[in-house]
Amino acid sequence: MAVKVRIPTPLQRLTQGKEEVEGVPGTVIALVNNLEKHYPGIAERISEGGKIRRFVNIYLNEEDIRFLKAEETVVKDGDEVSIVPAIAGGVFTVNSVSLQCH
């Protein structure tokens, strides 16, 4: 049994349209880096410099990893990890936002 990773629609172009992929147990950041081996380009959409991007939320089962150990949260076989890009906007300009796939 592996880790089930839910891919949001904005990133499904990188997973050949798959909504769910398999991940490896370990820390969240290791899981993200491992996804990169199978789906090139995905890690930089989710993380930057070993940290999860500000406008990306990650859930381990039902818990936001920010309330656990963030990137260092440990994921086990049978767990479900959901990647959920934030929904946000407003008048102020923001820098360094590059979740989109071009």
Binding site: P10, A86, A88, G89
Partner: peptide, 18 residues
């Protein structure tokens, strides 16, 4: 207080293209 048109931040953060 602004028009019904996406701001630059709205565009930068429009991740859900569908």
């Amino acid at each position: 207080s602004s028009p019904a048109y996406p701001s630059s931040k709205d565009v930068s953060l429009a991740f859900y293209e569908d």
